[in-house]
């Protein structure tokens, strides 16, 4: 790759030289109107799902590659379906990280696919910054959507979450939102926090033990709580996070049961929040760990609606990024 395509430190790489949104790498630094445009476009796609013919010709003739270096069911399948419903051709490539020889193989894989004249990449990678690296390398030649990079960002998940909140809990400008669980290691939480801030959420809280929710998180503009009861008081929306088993191995928690004892969402504890508070979870859920089955399957949980919304939001993102490419 030439030095000309590699200019670090030149501002947010998801924008092109004209300031248009060219890639979706992070919710951080998005403009409010861009965020709203994505959400409003997603509203229009939501209705398509209920038609007998669920396709639009928006991306006809385009090729989108789902390049996944990490396992995923929900995200990969909704991206695939989103692209197909927009009439794009979709190539699914799952690269197991054990067989990938790291680094070079990411860029070489991308270069090889570019030689096949593809138009966009949806990338999931276990390392933070991977999608940025690809976007910086490709510049304007193809769109890049970050479908999760290490512990950094998962912007479409956050967008579908704010979409869900806006539809089911009302205006974000009036809602108090709490994110519960392993915020430190969560790309979902980071992206949620930025998206909620941009949309004017008046109070964002993060709740969990200090080993997973350090005080330093307040740098993101959130209020930090280490006590679930205090943290849930007055909350309209609860975003639970998936707890990874690795956290036990790294001694950040004594046990899953201990986590549930302090921070698990149970029907009784939901009473601490505002009546009818919405419960979100990005999935897959650990029943009986971060969330009790009664809550996950209860009336306040919107976990399956999030999945449906994810499809609409991903269609909206692909449409808008492809439109910026001048193909529409």
């Amino acid at each position: 790759m030439s030095a000309a395509t590699f200019r670090f430190g030149e501002g947010n790489p998801q924008y092109d030289a004209q300031g248009r949104l060219r890639h979706l790498l992070s919710t951080e630094g998005l403009r409010e109107r861009e965020l709203l445009q994505i959400l409003d476009t997603a509203e229009s796609f939501l209705s398509i799902a209920h038609r007998s013919v669920k396709k639009t010709p928006t991306l006809r003739g385009r090729t989108i590659v789902n390049l996944f270096f990490e396992n995923s069911t929900r995200t990969r399948s909704t991206f695939e379906l989103a692209a197909k419903r927009l009439s794009a051709d979709v190539l699914n490539i799952a690269v197991s990280t054990s067989s990938a020889s790291k680094g070079e193989s990411l860029m070489d894989t991308v270069n090889n696919l570019m030689a096949m004249q593809v138009d966009g990449f949806v990338i999931r990678h276990p390392e933070a910054g991977a999608a940025h690296l690809v976007a910086r390398h490709l510049g304007d030649s193809a769109l890049v959507v970050n479908a999760g990079d290490g512990q950094h960002a998962h912007p479409t998940q956050a967008l579908l979450d704010v979409f869900t909140i806006r539809r089911l809990a009302g205006p974000i400008e009036d809602r108090v939102v709490a994110i519960v669980g392993d915020v430190l290691h969560s790309r979902v939480a980071r992206s949620q926090i930025h998206a909620l801030s941009i949309l004017g959420c008046p109070e964002i809280r993060v709740i969990g033990p200090r080993t997973l929710v350090p005080e330093a998180l307040s740098a993101l503009g959130v209020h930090v709580y280490h006590d679930l009861q205090a943290g849930l008081r007055g909350v309209d929306v609860i975003c639970a996070l998936r707890l990874q088993r690795e956290r036990m191995e790294s001694h950040r928690l004594p046990s899953l049961d201990e986590f549930h004892r302090r921070f698990g969402l149970t029907p009784e504890r939901l009473q601490w929040a505002e009546p009818g508070a919405l419960v979100l979870h990005p999935g897959p859920i650990n029943r009986g760990v971060e969330i009790a089955s009664e809550v996950a399957d209860g009336a306040q949980a919107v976990i399956l609606k999030q999945v449906a919304h994810g499809l609409a939001v991903r269609m909206a993102v692909l449409t808008i990024l492809a439109g910026a490419a001048g193909g529409e």
């Binding site: 790759m1 590699f6 790291k102 680094g103 070079e104 990411l106 860029m107 070489d108 990678h125 390392e127 933070a128 910054g129 991977a130 690296l133 390398h137 290490g150």
Partner: peptide
């Protein structure tokens, strides 16, 4: 050298 340019921040 330039080989490093294709690495992620963590790998580099």
């Amino acid at each position: 050298g330039v080989d490093r340019e294709g690495m992620t921040f963590t790998q580099a």
